[in-house]
Amino acid sequence: MTDQAPTLYEWAGGAEALSRLTEEFYSRVRKDELLAPLFARMSDDHPQHVATFLGEVLGGPADYTRHHGGYRHMVSRHRDRAIEPAQRERWVELMREAMDVVGLPQDAEFRSAFIGYIEFGSRRAMANSQPGVGPGTRTTVKKWGWGEAAPGDD
């Protein structure tokens, strides 16, 4: 028996749960009047890439870094898209809906931590999407936990 708390990735249900989440989420995005234009050229494997990224962020395997180019690649995909605040808010709203539909855990601690990341990440994506914004200094995927910063992750 271990005294270590499970990661958010483990608590969510791992890769399979995050894949269900992103498939449900992007099926909603494709039909959404506000978001569909931003994702009009989205590849069919985009939901899986996002699931892999979320998995790494939430304490799962570093597969996004290993197989998809890591943090800098992810940021490059948002460059010059000029995401607007209403689009970011809708993105968060649809993610919350998808979480309920696919049955991610309902406990307050998990929801708070997960939505905390979704809020943080979507705000960073919006900031990085503005015209003229250059690359930041971060080179690694930020790890997200149960409410405290990971050691050495500032």
Rank of each mutant, 00 (worst) to 15 (best):
G13F: 05
R88L: 12
S19P: 00
A12N: 04
E119I: 00
T22L: 12
G69E: 07
K143R: 15
G14S: 10
L94E: 04
H49K: 15
R41C: 01
E93V: 03
R77K: 15
D3P: 04
G132C: 01
T7E: 14
D3E: 11
V57I: 10
R77Y: 00
Y9I: 07
L58M: 15
Y64Q: 01
D45W: 09
V101T: 13
A82K: 07
S27M: 04
H49A: 12
R77G: 06
T65C: 01
Q4K: 15
E84Y: 11
G70E: 03
Q4N: 06
G145R: 12
A40R: 02
M74Y: 13
R124A: 13
G152L: 02
R96Q: 14
P61Q: 13
V133E: 12
T7R: 05
E97G: 12
R88P: 05
E119M: 00
K31S: 15
G59M: 03
Y64S: 01
D32Q: 12
E84S: 00
S112Q: 11
E23Q: 11
V50Y: 02
L18C: 06
S129W: 03
H67N: 10
L58A: 13
S27R: 15
A15L: 07
A98L: 07
V141F: 05
A149H: 13
D154K: 06
H68W: 12
K31G: 04
D107F: 09
I83L: 11
L54P: 02
T65D: 01
I115V: 12
L34V: 01
L21Q: 09
A86S: 14
T140E: 08
P85W: 02
V141M: 07
R138F: 12
R81F: 11
A40Y: 05
P151E: 10
G59I: 00
L18K: 05
T7S: 13
V133S: 00
M99I: 01
T137M: 11
V141K: 08
G145T: 03
I115W: 09
P6I: 03
T52M: 03
S76Q: 14
G136H: 09
G134F: 06
G132A: 08
M42K: 12
K143T: 09
G116V: 04
G152P: 03
V133L: 11
P47A: 15
F110K: 10
N128L: 02
Q48H: 09
W144Q: 04
W144I: 08
T65F: 00
D45H: 14
A17Q: 09
A82P: 00
A150Y: 08
D45N: 15
H78R: 02
L34F: 03
